[in-house]
Design a protein around this nucleic acid. Structure first.
Lengths: 226, 226
DNA sequence: TTGCTCCTCACGTCACGTGAGGTGGC
DNA sequence: TTGCTCCTCACGTCACGTGAGGTGGC
């Protein structure tokens, strides 16, 4: 039945394990129990095979990506995310605290395709800020944008409250580029030929460097205060 | 009674609120309920006034600083931290998973005074790594070191597993310095004369920049994989 | 007397993890 | 038949937060 559903719909229906695989790259600590938990809290509603196996449609997966992204990037509790999604499903135009505006209702299903105007609307920022961000390399130029770019814009928006503009922050992009060179070179030199374990090594090393930077920044902030 | 205790001991005994104030700089999201919770879990044992008010000695405060630091910098669950401290109190020489070795038993009460050898022991790293770290500006030269420097050394130790040395990472320090200049200038320009709110602004802006960098790094890692 | 800080105790909450006992599909 | 994936349901857990009802100290 599952495979016939697959064939007839044309859309891929994924099992819980397959969903996990799909999202493992973006969300490494996703677990089956977390996915079941999200269903229990009514944040996603996968359908079921006659035997009771969960089957996730590609929209379900997008919805998950969306939810997990809000959790990770905006530190939002699930209750708030649920209320937002419920309002969306009811056809409303909800807003989220501190997140400016989230990906437009119409765009929820096609998350890789935010137009320039949708992006501006969603991030709640000015034309100027976006073009500054682009010209300083913090967001790639183009006709379509990803939700990640919205997050970038939102942080830039917040930074502006302190008088800090994309121009001040263009160095960050260069830092990241150099760090990626270092990280990928190191991961490559680890000698593992498997692509997945190279990716894992890159992430781990990158995390270590993050922690180093974190400690140094904290120290610096402490001495700044005294 | 409290004040007489203060006078007779010479050591300052702090109320729960005063402890909060003291640690607010290093641990901004510390709360009274968290302090009570830590006592409930037997991680700290403040004494009491006859009326039942908690009084924290300076050793208690150091112990708290130690616990909160392990939580924050090493992501250790309290149960593990408790077992470690219990073993210490019993006179043992416990170890912590992934943390190399923690500040030496004898040094628990005098946390700002790690000697060079204590630091090496605690971080579980080589002479060479420490001198490299110092010569590349990641740790200040001197006869005594702080626990923060141990954390730095431990991350450097982990980075070495990937063939990444202090020399590769000296750029991080320069990045942090430039970021501090930016941050303090911006916070200063905010016009608030209160030192505390300037510090708060610095921390907030610094957090925003962190998030920006985080998103950019994540993006970069994702594209690295594909 | 008025605030303010502090107290206990019970209960709630948030985000899952675990494990028993069982079924489905190749 | 053997694995493997998946299922439910109950319970556990971790790290606190909340709120009622009350006391202590200047």
């Amino acid at each position: 039945v599952v495979s016939s559903a697959r064939a007839s719909s044309g859309a891929s229906l994924l099992s819980i394990g397959q969903v996990l695989q799909r999202l493992a790259g973006e969300f490494p600590d996703l677990s089956p129990s977390k996915l079941r938990f999200l269903e229990d809290r009514d944040l996603v509603k996968p359908s079921r095979t006659p035997a009771g196996y969960r089957t996730y449609s590609s929209q379900d997966v997008e919805r998950l990506r969306f939810i997990l992204g809000l959790q990770r990037d905006h530190y939002l509790p699930l209750r708030v995310i649920k209320e937002y999604l419920d309002e969306l499903d009811r056809g409303g135009q909800p807003s989220l605290p501190g997140v400016a505006r989230v990906v437009q209702p119409a765009a929820v299903g096609r998350r890789d395709a935010l137009t320039r105007n949708e992006l501006l609307e969603a991030a709640g920022c000015s034309e100027q800020l976006l073009s500054d961000a682009i010209s300083h390399g913090l967001i790639p130029a183009g006709a379509l944008f990803a939700p990640d770019h919205q997050v970038v814009l939102e942080t830039l928006n917040e930074a502006e409250r302190f008088g800090v503009t994309p121009r001040h922050l263009r160095g960050i992009r260069l830092q990241v580029e150099r760090e990626m060179e270092l990280v990928s070179r190191a991961a490559g030199a680890m000698g593992s030929t498997q692509k997945s374990s190279q990716a894992e090594a890159s992430r781990e090393l990158s995390g270590i460097i993050m922690q180093l930077r974190h400690v140094l920044i904290r120290q610096a902030l402490d001495t700044l205060e005294s």
